[in-house]
Design a protein around this nucleic acid. Sequence first.
RNA 1: GGGCCAUUAGCUCAGCUGGUUAGAGCGCAGUCCUGAUAAGACUGAGGUCUCUGGUUCGAGUCCAGAAUGGCCCA
Length: 1091
Amino acid sequence: MLLSAPEATVFRPVDPKVSFPALEERILQFWKEQRIFEKSIEQRPEDNLFVFYEGPPTANARPGIHHVLSRVFKDLVPRYRTMRGYRVPRKGGWDTHGLPVELEIEKELGLKSKPEIEAYGIAAFNEKCKESVSRYVEEWTRLSERIAFWADYDHPYVTYDNGYIETCWWIFKQLWDAGLVYQDYRSTPHCPRCGTSLSDHEVALGYQDDVPDPSVFVKFRIPGDALADAGYRAAGPLALVAWTTTPWTLPGNVALAVKADAEYGVYELEGEAVILAEALAPKVLGGEPQPAARLRGEQLVGLAYEPLYRPELLGHPVMRFDDDGRLRPLAAGEATDGLRRVIAADYVSLEDGSGIVHIAPAFGGEDFEEGKHYRLLFAQPIDLRGIMAEGLPGAGKFAKQADRDVERDLEERGLLLKKGTIKHTYPFCWRCGTPLLYYAKPSWYLRTTALREQLLAGNERINWYPEHIKHGRFGNWLANNIDWAVSRERYWGTPLPFWRCEACGEAACIGSKAELIERAEDRAAAEALDDLHRPYVDAVTIRCAACGGTARRVPEVADAWFDSGAMPYAQWHFPFEHEAEFRRHFPADFICEAIDQTRGWFYTLHAEATLLKAAGAIPDGIAYKNVICLGHINDEKGNKMSKSRGNTVDPWTVIEKHGADATRWYMYAASPAGMPRRFSAGLVEEGLRRFLLTLWNTYSFFVSYANIDGFRPAGGRVEPAAEIDRWLLSELNALVAKVTAELEEYDPTDAARAIEAFVDDLSNWYVRRSRRRFWRGASEGDADKQSAYETLYAALVTLAKLLAPFTPFVAEELWQNLVRSVDPAAPESVHLAAWPEADASRIDDRLNAETQLIKRLCSLGRAARAKASIKVRQPVAEVVVKLRDAAEAAVVERNRHLVLEELNAKALRLIDDETEVVAYDVKPNLPVLGPKHGQAVGAIRQGLAALDPAEVAAAVRRGRGLAVAGIELEPGDILLQAQDREGYAAAQEAGYTVAVTTAITPELADEGLAREIVRRLQDLRREAGFELADRIRAWVAGDAEVERVVASHAAYISGETLAIELTAGEPPAGAVRAEEDLDGSRTVFGVQRVS
RNA sequence: GGGCCAUUAGCUCAGCUGGUUAGAGCGCAGUCCUGAUAAGACUGAGGUCUCUGGUUCGAGUCCAGAAUGGCCCA
């Protein structure tokens, strides 16, 4: 090999032992200094926008690995779109309001309840909340930058800003005017500790399984002759049996529900009779109880029963639903006798309980609806803290503790038929863990149910990845939509802009600060308002438009999810400012969050857009067109990561060890975006080794040799000289097409895997098989060498571009060193470059398939060699190949040199019949034959043995059966075992046979030894730290055999090792030497650099 | 109770609209190769493709049902 001396170093030398984290730090510095992110936006035309919305995180805790997951997916699409020529602004944002923030501060201040917060002072409390939400902003920004999540954090939107709040007010006003806001008593999930309702999505966060609760069957007495019409008279007491798991709600009981068309039975027990559903009687009473009488549910409807408790007689206020379904307080002294009655309800279950359901409208959703329908009483002798009222069992205790007092009380009064414990799923407060109580109280609602059709129609226009979310989880959620409970009885949030008149009760909605000033009783005070939060806004009263009285703001703040859903408008302070920006940036082309956001941000964005469109306030009814919905990230055992389990992964440790690119690559390549994934640092490392290092080594190889040869890319279209070059360019263009198509479909995973496969081909086939082309001197064919360089160069440069969205750092490194170094006119960064276009004329599917064939044959050849234990360094005389068809012969002929070189063989011969190299042994397939032919197997065995195995084998291989001992055998009845023929070692697969000759002639043995010597010398060169192109003197001292080969193969050995002098004998003192065992004899090797 | 997703080697995952003998990576054992390689090649052990039916000439793939797990909702 003749390597020319380095002429000019074109490319910066590449360290094969690269530290990716250090490399990344350098590139971060470069991006920052050169403002690459800013330029990637500025350089793209303003009228070709691709809109991305950043879902705002709350920066009151450290970011975790799951945030890295969503950020790298969020980052990939904008980078790709930028390279496609779009301008993709990325405004960062912070979500700042809400209960989690308040709870954090409560904990810090040691506050335990709302009265304590109010005693501490709402202003001071909110100030603390405000400080806390930016506590980790720096940490978030630092991590985001480090993983190359490009976003504008210098101008983020912040949900606590007055402007943001004002836009939220504007939205409320639009909906208010459209009749989409209302206040209603509703049964809502209520956290007695936090003192507020929770929205459905919050409730969803806190379900716990296997929660033990009481299971009690309670007797509600009725008169003994109550069933006279049905023909039954009780001798003793008679009672309806109802079942509940919440005894604390029994003081609120105002009705019992039965299923009208179900069968009920009267069962006589010791001294009393009870009524319950026939279907459930065996379960409740045990055995096979026989009813003393039977009746249908409808016959029970209207029966008045004896109340267990009558809070109204204990001085507790009780209300009643009026004809309009509104609650009105009972008049003083108004009698409630006989108002507690049996009603009919469809949902009464005949699978659990007794078939009679206890109804307490104050505490249950369906109960509340029944209350409206039947104009029931409404008794709520438990306050918002969940404390039982005076005079009732468990008075002063928390509801769940009062359960036992209620049970005991009923037991003492003989009203408890049966008690036990069940385990079921029950909701707890997702932040503080307190059991939620369903509690009827007034809340503000957005009438989303009125727009169900629009919500669903809008969803049809959204592309979901993975697709099943669209009609699955998200679609079902929309189809089962209920009105959005949007108020929270809390402090740190967007104040609801509703004012209610103290005099007449009239409510008004204020849609802006200007409107507030306009209507304020004290305009100066309103104008001076520089913080729209509580408590300041609470101080502003307005004049009631209806009666001229004073209206005060309602005490609630908005659900923080409302803020996040307002982001498309509020980030611009629309419509007060930036109207044009809003219009240009709505709706988003792309958003990306994890699957939990189907009920969070995905929903609130969609709901608010739909509501605003219905109110006529915005141009389009969807807020986003494409959405990647990520699966959750679990620990390596598949368990959910959580602080309490202690199995969270700190992203920094992974990034500092393996780098951001490796982490990103893992996220994209390991599993599809929508699937839950198991994360471990080990998997990141695996991707690093398998992919990034392979790429890096190929890059390093190229730069080493290109510098030696002073290669400069010619520019323009590469004209490949060799078939393998044409193949690589074909695969490369196919890759470009594939990656582009996948990214258009928002599927980074298939794209990444395709790149990975290409890099493997590039390194382990193209470079391996082309290596010597890079070594050759100019005299041996400059055109071929140039073609190899151009081809490899083109592949690496294209890879840099394809990888830019995935692994932005290593892509930048390749770009800077391979492109910018030789072309100062090239874009300053790969992230400012144009996305590559696939050249369809380069894609040759047939060539790709043919290369697969050659690789397969080489693989078989290596297997054949291994079988014969002939190492690859030892040349063999001949490789013999049997192909499947004649067309393949031409392919092999064209690639003859590749196969010969790869398999280190002197000759290649194609044969038509593999029986030249293998013989088939024929055996009966006994496990198959046995069941089929039973005792005849013996005869078949003998008959088969008597036949010519070659003929039998030939028949079987053609898929034909044959008759043996008078029995027709099928091909599957006979087993063929190939045996190598004398002098050959063969391997077979799918109709191909590749064999090598096993006889090693003395000449071949000498060549093998020469190659062995070359390898030892090369090792020594490397150990000595010589440069690739250094010339050396070399010595080999061994036995006569070794020295003879050194002499006879001197030219070969010298050429390979760049030795200008090769001596058979001991190396001198100054040489680097090594003693090694060579074919059983001690041999001394020595090398010395020629200066 | 309902919805969605998943189930393929010890682990992580491919397997497209049904089509020869179900693959890869990691890990394990061994052999080999290497002046780009932290790599790579070959071999071995490791699979009733969760199960049961069905459609079909043919099912890991399509259909129905079941089981298990995950997420979500009640």
